[in-house]
Amino acid sequence: MLIPSEQWTWQYCPIKDRLVLNLDDTVQFTSELTGAMLNEKVLNQPFSIAEAETFWRIQDVLQPLIANDAECLEFCFHALANRFRQLTAHKSWYFATQRQQDIGAYQLVQLQGNDQLTALVVASDLECIECLLLASGETLAGKLLAKNAVIRVLRNRAQLLEVDIDLARSA
């Protein structure tokens, strides 16, 4: 398992036109975020203690649902990269209205479109949540959303996902 390090750095790569996380001299995680999607084009920003704590929190949340370590790691990095994303308008009409719940960051939710989509909440504010999709699926409008896409929706469009957590692992 990969362990977060202060040697990791975020940077915008103009050649790839993507935000990347440099893990060492030879390994990079390339995010889906293009330069136009970024709120700032970062250069060699070190991975912080807060990001490391969030990394472990996301791992714990995803572990019961995502068995593949590489896929879980990919979701973690996409979730962490979201803080560099420009704020976008919500796309709530893509999903059915659900019962209003108190939903916070790093919880698993389901969004009901033509497909039921499982997502990780990567950011939240008073009215909306931003969800990282854990699988591809179709919205009520017939739009196909890709795995790892982040979509902003009103809070009443998401339903908390009940997942059994192995308490022995998280203790």
Rank of each mutant, 00 (worst) to 15 (best):
Q110N: 13
L154P: 05
N39H: 05
V153D: 04
V122H: 06
E130Y: 13
L21S: 01
D60K: 08
I165Q: 13
Q98M: 06
Q98S: 03
K143S: 11
L120W: 01
C13R: 07
A81N: 02
H78N: 05
G142A: 06
N82R: 04
R83M: 10
T34W: 05
D17N: 01
A123Q: 00
D164A: 12
Q45I: 06
F77W: 12
L144F: 11
A70P: 01
L62N: 02
L38Q: 02
Q28M: 08
Q7V: 05
S124L: 02
L65S: 12
L43H: 11
L120D: 01
R152C: 13
F29R: 02
F75W: 03
A79S: 02
C72K: 01
T54A: 11
R57W: 09
A50F: 11
A146E: 08
R99Y: 08
V122G: 00
T97H: 11
V163Q: 14
V121F: 10
A105E: 09
L87F: 11
D25P: 06
S31M: 09
L161C: 14
Q116C: 07
T118M: 15
A146N: 14
K147E: 13
L161S: 08
F95T: 02
L154G: 12
Q63W: 10
R99S: 03
L33R: 03
L23P: 01
N156A: 12
E130N: 10
K16N: 10
C131I: 03
L108D: 02
Q112F: 13
N114I: 10
L167I: 14
F47Q: 00
V150K: 06
F29A: 08
E127D: 13
F75A: 13
W8D: 00
S31L: 13
D60P: 15
L21D: 00
A79K: 06
E32K: 15
D69A: 15
A149E: 12
L145V: 07
I103Y: 07
K143F: 14
L154W: 14
M37Q: 10
A50V: 12
A105P: 06
W8R: 00
S170C: 14
Q11L: 13
G137Q: 02
E32A: 14
G113P: 04
E71D: 11
R57V: 09
F84D: 00
R155I: 12
R157D: 09
A141C: 09
W8M: 00
C128H: 15
T26G: 07
A79M: 03
T54M: 06
I129E: 02
N82Q: 09
L80G: 09
P14Y: 01
D24I: 05
A171Y: 15
I66N: 03
Q7S: 10
